[in-house]
Amino acid sequence: MNTYPARFEYLDEIRDLVAQVARRGGFTEKEIYSIQLAADEAASNIIEHAYEGTTDGILQVTCEMQGNEIFIAMHDDGKPFDPSEVKQPNLKADLSERQIGGLGVYLMRKLMDKVQYESKPGAGNLLTMRKRRG
């Protein structure tokens, strides 16, 4: 498990971590980019929403291969932020009506096979994502 200050300048390191694991796990470069993007969107949401208004939050990231799947877990102690409650953006809306929010969560769901979230009072929030190779 890796621990990062919950600040945007650490997104680079989080993307590097998941890319390293995915590359060793035999994912293609296209898949690695998708995994990096999903991890970035997940971490960005935690920093922006779960830790909204704080600067000393901690983000714990676990990333490993489990069989032919990459498994990413992100734990935080911020406010509960359930991505499944985020409304899907209307991707057909024209320019003036296009919603700006919700895009990160939408991308996470499209790029990964499975995204799960649980919030336990006193134990923080846990987001897990999985993607199978190939």
Partner: peptide, 8 residues
Amino acid sequence: YMSSAGFR
């Protein structure tokens, strides 16, 4: 690289 923050 560009994330949804760039798209926004």
